[in-house]
Design a binder for these strands. Structure first.
Lengths: 333, 333
DNA sequence: GGTGAGATTCGAATAATTTTCGAAACGGGC
DNA sequence: GCCCGTTTCGAAAATTATTCGAATCTCACC
């Protein structure tokens, strides 16, 4: 099919006026070829249907995701895929939910080769980290579930500021009794809760510990804890949710009691996943630039194959408040 | 690092008691090696850290998605990734939104090799199909936007039945004035609308053409058309949306007018994406087994490298009605 | 401007791997 | 048994990768 077969390297070497060695070296990304010579040879090689291993860079990168259930992942995938496409890199998406799954992935990845891994997981544990290092697979962690150590490169967002922004927004609207739902299970969750506390203290408001609820970052978790908050005698007039899924759950709990957002209770989410604007009412939320995070993580991965030492090891992107329709001043103000 | 470097092929050949040629052939999936010899050599090769090209099967498959904005894609990715993982295959996800983008993907894919492509696009056009064929890349289309021809393998769902199920459910609840929002732009949309018509006729109900609205499968589209439906003098008591995004938009339009689902108007979605259950009220919808579709498509791809001829070329998975809280009998019944 | 240590670039020689091709072994059908 | 086609294998040839020394360049230092 598809015409004549590829000519041999020596034919190409002749055409380019260099030795076969040089051509071979260009083909596999060898180092000792001058830039212009390399370019000339590479062009010829490609012309004849060879693929040229670009000396820097790689063909595929891996994105490891713990669970592919939240709209979260979608944004991340999009960010990673698009950033990678610009660099002519393909992204392999894998779900990894157990150490065994990780091992299976690692096995496949080292067989086929990979330029590096972006992890969005309940962390690769120390075992996994060792294996990655042994297989010489670079790693960047997105939204690290534990405080990122110096040994691991990671990308996150300003969760603490985000928690503050959300709470401050409500305080500025005039709310005083503000509930919060979150999780202590991951680092980012702890930071968001701390942001809430900081904003309350800053405004001179007392923190009622009954108003601080912990649960999973799911709609069900949000609904369960919102029910408890709403059942309090001094029910909050506003609720800060741990993420948008929880916020959806809060909206459901409100509807159950015949309450309306934002008339009766204001709600702030966290993430700004695409569906946040589909909610009724459209959700006021703290925007995490998920796609940008993934893109940044990819660039970290690809950028510093050379300069690992002097690059920053943890990058934090800014969150921002997106005001939609689920927040308003409290009743009677 | 990591211990000694890989021994040469001739060393391995010696260890296995065969010629270097045989070892080389096993390494690249050559054909003329007996099964047991191959196994022995392969084991040794792997032991020494070589990767062995499995002669059947492939290492990566490509999933091409038009837009990665809907919760749609997430389910599909999950299905494909999980089915592929079972077959020890990695899935490369790429967004392709233009012919140029397709060309760039094809370029990369043919460089690095791929076992085949799963497409969820506004179709690869005939040009693209030719190029795929030229590059010998097998193809399966998911949810084909045009009536699937005999030349293309595809996986879809029973959209016509789905449209019927949704409409029938509302009729059985007692609704008579039922609006529908959908799209004629894609084949599945046309089938769903036809299902609506069929169910109405079956029940002996007249179809008011003002009740049949067309718009994009987005929340904005759903909101816009729902506004029009609700503005009618004889506004519908129930609305069948073209997908879940549109249904979210319908819920917003209802809230705008101070109406409540399902008390004032019942709403049925289509897809059953994970967020459907987060809506307020939780969305009654037609479940498309998106993950199963992607998994089936992957199996089609991998299954019949041999038996292309006698396999079915279009597979249709069943939709089912998922009743949640957004539908109820009409007021006054 | 000279000098020399070190880095870069290159290709001949050498090593390793892949491919070709013919021979040996096998398996029925007649 | 004989013939014909098929499978399996490895020696030889072709191709590709790597090593290493020579040539050239760079630049600090005198």
């Amino acid at each position: 099919m598809a015409g004549s077969r590829a000519p041999t390297l020596s034919a190409i070497a002749g055409e380019a006026g260099v030795s076969v060695s040089a051509v071979s070296k260009v083909r596999n990304g060898g180092t000792d070829v001058a830039a212009d010579t390399r370019a000339r040879i590479a062009r010829l090689l490609r012309q004849h249907g060879y693929q040229v291993a670009s000396q820097t860079g790689f063909a595929v990168a891996d994105l490891l995701i713990g669970c592919l259930d939240s709209p979260w992942s979608e944004e991340l995938i999009r960010g990673a895929v698009e950033a990678a496409a610009e660099a002519e890199v393909s992204v392999i998406v894998t779900t990894v939910s157990s150490p065994a799954g990780f091992a299976r992935w690692l096995d496949r990845a080292s067989r086929r080769g990979t330029g590096g891994a972006l992890c969005v997981l309940q962390l690769p544990g120390s075992q996994e980290l060792q294996r990655l290092a042994a297989a010489r697979i670079p790693l960047v962690v997105i939204d690290p579930p534990e405080e990122p150590g110096a040994a691991i490169r990671s990308v996150g967002t300003t969760n603490w500021q985000g928690g503050m922004q959300a709470t401050r927004h409500l305080i500025e609207l005039g709310h005083r009794r503000i509930g919060v739902i979150g999780t202590e299970a991951v680092w980012s969750g702890r930071a968001r809760l701390a942001g809430y506390r900081a904003a309350m203290l800053e405004a001179g408001l007392d923190i009622d510990e009954r108003m601080v609820r912990h649960d999973g970052l799911t709609a069900a978790g949000g609904r369960a804890q919102a029910r408890r908050l709403l059942a309090l005698r001094d029910a909050p007039t506003a609720i800060v949710a741990g993420n948008d899924s929880q916020a959806f759950g809060v909206l459901q709990a409100l509807a159950e009691r015949g309450l309306r957002a934002p008339l009766d209770v204001s709600v702030v989410g966290f993430d700004d996943v695409p569906v946040a604007s589909w909610a009724t009412p459209a959700l006021t939320t703290i925007r995490q630039p998920l796609a940008a995070m993934a893109a940044a993580a990819f660039r970290m991965l690809s950028g510093d194959l050379a300069a690992v030492a002097d690059e920053p090891h943890h990058l934090e992107l800014a969150t921002s408040l997106v005001i939609r329709d689920s927040t308003a001043p409290p009743r009677g103000r």
